[in-house]
Design a protein around this nucleic acid. Structure first.
Lengths: 335, 335
DNA sequence: ATCGTTATCGCAAACGTTTGCGGAAAATTT
DNA sequence: AAATTTTCCGCAAACGTTTGCGATAACGAT
């Protein structure tokens, strides 16, 4: 079965392709009668304009590119869901790429999306992204770009984020008011803004409550479960036990959680623990984890809305806006 | 910044676009010297062929369409990860659509992908898909199609699945040998093959071990957590308690799990429970759930490999093949 | 000197759509 | 009846690429 074209319709009616094109777009130059005949035939044969041809004319597709570190991570898959949801209703489709936390692959993905003439890009950078040149070339080509959650600090574009410092501050404050005093922080790569900010919030809370910032209780690692597990292991091995942990995200918290349980320590009595993101899993472990609810789905939706607005505004340059979504500390039994 | 075209290069060198095109594709008609000059300029300006124009010529893109019920579900996001992984290395990108378990939206998505001239489609159908006409029209247009996990029974195409009946049989057999006798089954929509087959495996195991199949212990519901919760609620309300539950999937198992805990019943002493899929969460709840490991990532990879093979084989018709991946029962403390 | 070969390249069409421009016919005004 | 306007539509170019075919020149062979 072949796709029917505007030319096919034109031939059937003995008119020109341009007339058909105009008839379908309700151009005032075309007689009502002709419009009707064209429309009827188009309906009958389920005519849909060839979007590739349209893209070639416009030098732009109706595809939104999405770049995330890893699709299968709760936070990102949920954000992608949100992006798809908004895109779908606005008539766009989404191409999803994952960098696998790899800088080079992120660059390749970005260039591939540019080259595929996507209408815009929504991205969350990898933890190893050392510069934003690839994103700068996106901007240079006039392609709308929005970061969500993990933004690239040397590229001035719109972003949808949360107040990481404040969220961390609140989380750690909560621990302190619960009576915890030796609070460790399992953080991620120093390069990532979100890590820097959460660390900042952590320090600020300690200072505010006149607690010392103990360097040996700040554990640098990755963002995965294994990293949390390893950091905990390290603390245990060094006999440097904290009485509470604020983890940079939920997977890290879960990793620590497992190691703590293996060590036979009780949560929250021996060690309190706070995660970050409100992954589904945190509500189901025993005891359920206190965590910061990060509205992943909404972040995806907002990012897409912002991006589509940029795409359809026809303006070449936009002043970057930053949307900060609210987080809520969800207090459960782990603290 | 504008994209450089083949014509731009041609003009710079004072030759024709066709020569440039042939030079870049190493056509034997072109002098080595010319090839070198062209290649040099192409490198210098980072020339990449406009893929939209290429698509228009070929009437086909290098995009693989992916349709899943819900992106954010563990199983699917993991499968998508696998698809992306394979696609990436083969030079394809993926467009991801979600049906939200809605039949009409699945149809819209499918038509949208056809209309966007994707090179092929990987799909897992919604639980409300009542017929496969939309997929038939994919086949009719010669677009390669592969189902994974949830296949459409009235469309004869390749699929990547697991042996649902056998996996269910093994899971229930395990429960029986553990001494459980009143084993309930929380199943999903009757229309879904995977549900039918898992139910079949459940019944077969009971029969094989001379246990009665008790209709009131077969609970029909959806595939989400809430459904498992509700089914369990129902059993409790009717004072119709089983001593074990085989759930159609992990979310349903988790839902039941929560209701069981709320009821103050002990797992596995009072009620044993087996899930299906090996979602990450099952390993982290307390007690961890016995479940059937369903290789989601591999299913995604295999599907993509199969699809790409079809795409690149240039043949118009393929005899549908079915790849059945192995499952393993992961025995944990919930049984 | 004529012919056939080979090497090298350009022309033009095609993919399907959109759109500026111009043109013929019809309707209206003078 | 002539002039003007309006209505309606087609031509052709353009987006960037690929490719069949033909063209030209250089070359060696007869």
């Amino acid at each position: 079965m072949k796709h029917i074209t505007i030319t096919d319709i034109a031939k059937k009616l003995g008119i020109s392709a341009s007339t058909v094109s105009r008839a379908l777009s309700d151009h005032p130059d075309i007689k009502e009668e002709t419009k009707k005949k064209v429309q009827q035939l188009a309906d009958e044969f389920y005519y849909k304009p060839n979007s590739i041809a349209q893209s070639l004319k416009n030098n732009r597709t109706t595809i939104i590119g999405v770049i995330v570190p890893e699709i299968k991570h709760d936070f990102f898959s949920s954000a992608i869901s949100g992006i798809e949801e908004v895109a779908y209703h606005a008539g766009y489709t989404i191409i999803v790429c994952q960098s696998n936390e790899n800088f080079e692959r992120e660059v390749v993905n970005t260039n591939s999306l540019i080259h595929q003439r996507v209408a815009g890009i929504v991205a969350s950078i990898s933890q190893n992204t050392i510069n934003g040149d690839h994103f700068k070339s996106v901007v240079a080509r006039g392609i709308p770009l929005v970061f969500f959650d993990r933004a690239c600090s040397d590229v001035a574009v719109s972003k949808v984020i949360i107040d990481d410092a404040k969220s961390a501050f609140d989380a750690v404050s909560h621990l302190i008011t619960k009576g915890y005093k030796r609070i460790a922080h399992f953080t991620g790569p120093k390069e990532l803004d979100i890590c820097k900010l959460r660390l900042k919030g952590y320090s600020k809370a300690l200072s505010e409550f006149n607690l010392p910032v103990i360097e040996s209780l700040i554990c640098y690692g990755g963002l995965h479960e294994a990293d949390g597990y390893n950091s905990m292991e390290e603390l245990i091995k060094n006999n440097n036990l904290p009485d509470a942990i604020f983890a940079v995200n939920d997977p890290v918290a879960i990793g620590a959680f497992q190691r703590i349980k293996e060590a036979g320590l009780r949560i929250p009595e021996d060690i309190g623990i706070v995660g970050f993101s409100n992954n589904k899993i945190t509500a189901l472990v025993d005891p359920p984890l206190t965590t910061v609810n990060q509205p992943s789905f909404e972040m995806g939706k907002k990012s897409a809305e912002l991006l589509i607005e940029m795409i359809e505004s026809e303006k070449q340059s936009f002043k970057p806006t930053t949307i900060t979504l609210n987080t809520v500390l969800i207090i459960r039994s782990s603290t």
